[in-house]
Design a protein around this nucleic acid. Sequence first.
DNA 1: CTCGTTTCTTATCATACATCAATGTAATAC
DNA 2: GTATTACATTGATGTATGATAAGAAACGAG
Lengths: 197, 197
Amino acid sequence: MASNFNTYLKEKAGVSADQFDRMKSKLLTKTIEKGQLILKSNQVCKHTFFVEKGLLRFYSIDEIGKEHLVQFAPENWFVSDRGSIYFNEPSAFFIDAIEETQVVMLDRNFIEFASEISPEYRNHNAFLLQNHIRMLQNRINLLIGASAEQRYLAFIKLYPDLMLRVPQWMIASYLGITPESLSRVRKELAKKYFTKQ
Amino acid sequence: MASNFNTYLKEKAGVSADQFDRMKSKLLTKTIEKGQLILKSNQVCKHTFFVEKGLLRFYSIDEIGKEHLVQFAPENWFVSDRGSIYFNEPSAFFIDAIEETQVVMLDRNFIEFASEISPEYRNHNAFLLQNHIRMLQNRINLLIGASAEQRYLAFIKLYPDLMLRVPQWMIASYLGITPESLSRVRKELAKKYFTKQ
DNA sequence: CTCGTTTCTTATCATACATCAATGTAATAC
DNA sequence: GTATTACATTGATGTATGATAAGAAACGAG
């Protein structure tokens, strides 16, 4: 139970076994069925989810019903609507499971509680925030400056294993293009690499 | 000197006059000429800039020399490359002044120092981080889902006064379109609102 | 295994936006 | 006051991506 989270905290944050022991009673774990929603738009987000196993998606739906994928969360990633948690306001996003997923659920209290037990945990939390901003900024930069093809290549670099795990229409939604366009981009790339040999 | 920053901290963060007095000796203020760079790509960002008066821009330049504007920073806004500061790594961005600008420069030490003097300051800093993420996420959402026209309308809403202060080619660069396209978008909008009367 | 569903690809046509070039306009310098 | 420079608009044309539709392939439930 929460063993990947334990390993993660040890390796990435430097949280000791003893510290983790004192935290773990406050942890909630849960299995999310494929397709099951764990955050709906207009609902206040109450948890940060750590993915033990499986795959979640964080997305919005626009006025005409189209989904726009903001973030994937595979193993060892965190996902939440930070704005909604922090400001206690209704979210504009959805989170659901692309595959059956095991998550550890961290509420606001847990994060403060764990930070008091472990300064390393607190630091790591700060790190995650900064890192999050860095990734978002990077994404914006790609969206305003790069072609669909460049963005697809950047996606592969960021999430190499996801290419095989998620349907292409979701990748397209992440890139801000249609599945048909992605199909064309892929065809072009295949052609390029093939003729290069 | 740094008087807008003082007012800002009092009103937005709840920092008392006494607390501010103890901070202010560590503050650096500076005047940035129009066009002057205060952060260059490949350079590690050392400060967060608070704009007392004037207007800064935060942008990148791609392989073919095109500028992509990530953020405007008018009066009472903060700007910095958080990733570069936090991770002590070279920035991929530039910051320069669109107008002659007065800034207060906050270094890493200042932020910790001020946070120890004032818990309110520390809270406000956390608020700024969360808010930053919220804004970036919002922007991504617009970029992957909305048309140039919708993005322009959102821009006007977010920075109502900037419309008049910045050249259109910069707005275009913020929106991820060419100046020519923006000109056409504006023409279309003017037509719509005119014929509606 | 088989049928139905979902996903992916392909083709055609439509549209938004880019590019390039010319012209217009306004601010600034000389 | 004219010249220069920066910025904005317009038009012609090109290109990437969107929309729609249809078929092929993969997948999943029975």
